[in-house]
Design a protein around this nucleic acid. Structure first.
Lengths: 220, 220
DNA sequence: ACGTTCCGGTACCACAGGGTTCCGGTACGT
DNA sequence: ACGTACCGGAACCCTGTGGTACCGGAACGT
């Protein structure tokens, strides 16, 4: 959350207010947040220093502290800033086949983006154990939208009868995102299409088609 | 790995050698390692200080450095030390039913142990992104034996015809450990029996029974 | 031109924590 | 008793880093 002191208060929509000596300056925030994410990807939160961020953003350390009160706040803001460009729940694939829908979430361009997101997640790993707020922010920004997308696709498939209505969608929609996160965080192997196909055909689809009638459905 | 200098070289099996001024001292190592694990569980690797470990073990910091060359080595040793008491691959449940075997891995006494292991894993999270060796040691000590146990149980079930021979065991044996690790690390929810049952009945067993004939089997 | 306002860079401070050293104490074997 | 060898505790050094103060300069409006 950018500091609301100084001169950078929320200008009402409609371009820069005519303040004297005012630079464009609005795009600097994004540059700095991107630089923060880049450093975070490279070295993780613990080894991230404000000097690295400043150097990467070609900014002065003072500028960082002028806008964010601390390292933590800067990183939180950077992670939140990453949400932009996330999977758009309104524009999900809808091919009539659940398998194609699921694989359709993985476009070549989204691949590198996902990889990046998971690396950010890995960079945040140190905080999962100590800063609950930041960890939750990271999860909400990175994994949750993905789970939501899976849930929608599976729900549709159930509605059109492609999979049994008894399928435990709440559980199974978390499987692939969880496994992907685990693979990226712990195993440090790439999340590629082969892996996705293996998960879809080997785990999720078989489980969905073979839903047990008595499943009590504990959402994880 | 305890430093091999000083006087604590590998005494050949057969009790304490009669060295003058020698205390029992053999149990101190275990105490220190346990203390290290306890602190690791509490605050994670980043916030773990040698003073904390020394205080917890009622030992002096000097003693720690007399035996381990650095903080990293101490923690690695502590994690490896945790392997002791791990699932014994020789004494796995064998009820004739894969479901009962899988659920049988989860005994009330093992529950708290697993919880502890996963907390250690969470404490190591900071290192997953930076110290590959330590991260791998943690994974090998905590998750891998569990995967192995699942693989054995599934292999047996396939051999006796309970599940199709085409089932992708290499992939599916990783599912529950991965999901459990994800749940503990990222979601910070407890790994309880309800969750396990949900995973076994909702994901793994349906997927095993409904193995597609053409599965190319990409082990994750 | 000129002042205003912000910016980037640098030097600096404070402090936490890893690692080292030293010392008095204590249990053991002799 | 006495020496030995290790132990626990505490003081200490040193580096890295978060955070601050300050300066010259560049853009913009007037």
């Amino acid at each position: 959350m950018p500091r609301d002191g100084d001169t950078r208060d929320c200008a009402p929509p409609g371009g820069e207010p005519a303040r004297p000596g005012r630079r464009l300056d609005r795009s600097r925030d994004a540059d700095i947040l991107d630089a923060t994410l880049a450093v975070l990807v490279d070295v993780g939160f613990a080894r991230l220093t404000m000097d690295m961020v400043a150097a990467r953003a070609k900014a002065g350390k003072a500028t960082l502290y002028r806008r964010w009160p601390s390292k933590s706040e800067l990183v939180i803001d950077a992670v939140a800033h990453m949400k932009r460009g996330q999977v758009d729940l309104g524009r999900l694939p809808d091919t009539g086949s659940l398998r194609d829908d699921l694989l359709g979430l993985f476009t070549p361009q989204s691949a590198e983006e996902d990889e990046r997101r998971l690396k950010v997640m890995a960079g945040l790993a140190s905080l999962l154990a100590q800063d609950r707020a930041l960890a939750d922010a990271g999860v909400a920004a990175i994994v949750q939208p993905w789970v939501e997308a899976h849930r929608v696709l599976m729900r549709r498939a159930a509605d059109r009868g492609e999979i049994p209505a008894t399928a435990d969608i709440d559980t199974l929609s978390q499987v692939i995102p969880s496994l992907a996160a685990y693979r990226a965080l712990v195993q440090r192997k790439p999340f590629d299409r082969d892996f996705l196909v293996s998960m879809v055909d080997g785990v999720v689809l078989p489980a969905l088609r073979n839903a047990p009638p008595l499943a009590a459905g504990h959402a994880p």
